[in-house]
Amino acid sequence: MADLQHLPLAALHAELGAKMTPFAGWEMPLQYPAGVMQEHLHCRAHAALFDVSHMGQVMLRGPGAAVALEALVGADLVGLADGRQRYAVFTDDAGGVLDDLMVARRGDDLFLVVNAANADADVAHLRAHLPAGIALEVVRDRALIALQGPQAEAALAALIPDAAALRFMDAVVLDWDGAALWVSRSGYTGEDGYEISVPVARAEAFARALLAQPGVAPAGLGARDSLRLEAGLPLHGQDIDATVSPIEAGLAFSVGRARRPGGARPGGFPGAGRILHELAHGPARARAGLLPEGRAPMRAGTLLFESEDATTPMGHVTSGGFGPSLERPVAMGLMPTRLCVPGTRVYGEVRGRRLPAVVAALPFRAPGYRK
């Protein structure tokens, strides 16, 4: 733990009894005394507060920022309206996923949130490819908090009434007691909620104010992972990486209409040839949801077979565990597209045994986003 970076809210986590764990170079709260399952269910029923300050926060400044960033992702950023946010994917020349990120438009500037494990690589990638005139600032003086769940709106609106008016993927600057908060109505749990960038000097006071609201409780990495798994959301380094294209990953929506053939600005991003071909003709393999039969979970790395007696694996589980809301194991895996039909039975090899699983549509649980 001594070599890890520490969160701005580390003292608060200790006070709340968090069990800490190393993650992406940071000391992070894995869970609190209530435990992962209760934190998960509390988020689904009420509201959970997650400290995600380990994520990379980056500002791109300049009137050409959207055009410049479009050269690295398939998203339509030129068409992104002020005060709105969009999901995007950095790709390499082979069409693989380098990272996924959120991009918010603020006038001519763009605010990016990238994965913690890839933050340094993403910044280096941007610096290597952005043209002169686009300033890049790594934001180091702000914490990042995620407030997620059906009671998130009521909790945040009690402190900032204007937050209630935000729609899904709105991203604005709101004032709280003299502090400028960068607020987006988004998250990675499948629930309604917000991600809030707050000055470090005010982060603990703001977190305490949220925790004082009815229905709000802290939650850690364990619940965050099980929530995003139930929501069918991919995790970079497990479900997506440089060996997987956005289309294989089920992220075709990240390629905007303007970037597709016939659009205003087709292609022009790394790996566009492969990605647009897969959009038109379909990929050979795809990410699929899996419902293992029985109670044994199929963890990441579990080999998948087309039949109980097949000798050669046809895919593997990328993420898997227990889904507390569904009260059963759930998983996601990469498999041949022909098998990714809901109802198809496949087999995972768990401790030397072939156990059946049924392909299921993603997400496993309907999202609660406010459209």
Rank of each mutant, 00 (worst) to 15 (best):
A2I: 12
D3L: 06
D3N: 08
P8I: 13
P22E: 00
F23W: 02
A24D: 05
G25L: 05
P29L: 01
L30F: 00
L30C: 00
Q31M: 03
V36S: 02
V36F: 01
H40P: 02
C43A: 07
L49C: 02
S53M: 09
S53W: 07
M55V: 06
V58W: 13
G62H: 04
G62L: 03
A65E: 03
A66N: 04
A71T: 15
A75T: 12
A75P: 06
L77H: 03
L80T: 08
G83V: 13
F90K: 06
D92G: 06
V97D: 05
D100R: 15
A104H: 07
D109Q: 05
A117S: 09
N118C: 09
A119G: 10
A121I: 08
D122E: 13
L126I: 11
A128T: 09
E137V: 14
D141T: 12
A146T: 04
Q151N: 11
A155W: 09
A157Y: 10
A164E: 14
A164T: 08
A165P: 07
F168Y: 15
A171E: 05
V172N: 06
D175F: 11
W176H: 14
W176D: 07
A180H: 12
A180D: 15
L181E: 12
W182N: 10
W182K: 12
V200A: 15
F206R: 14
A207T: 07
R208C: 03
A212E: 10
P214R: 15
P214A: 11
P214F: 13
V216Q: 05
G220S: 01
A223R: 00
D225V: 00
H236Q: 12
S245M: 05
E248L: 08
G256W: 07
P261V: 05
G262D: 10
G263P: 05
A272E: 09
I275M: 09
I275Y: 05
A280V: 14
G282A: 11
A286L: 10
G289I: 03
G294P: 12
A296C: 15
A300F: 02
A300E: 02
G301V: 03
E306N: 10
S307E: 10
T311I: 13
G315W: 08
V317R: 01
E327L: 13
R328V: 10
L334W: 04
C340V: 15
Y347A: 01
G348F: 03
E349S: 08
R351V: 13
R351E: 15
P356L: 06
A357C: 04
A366I: 03
G368S: 01
Y369L: 02
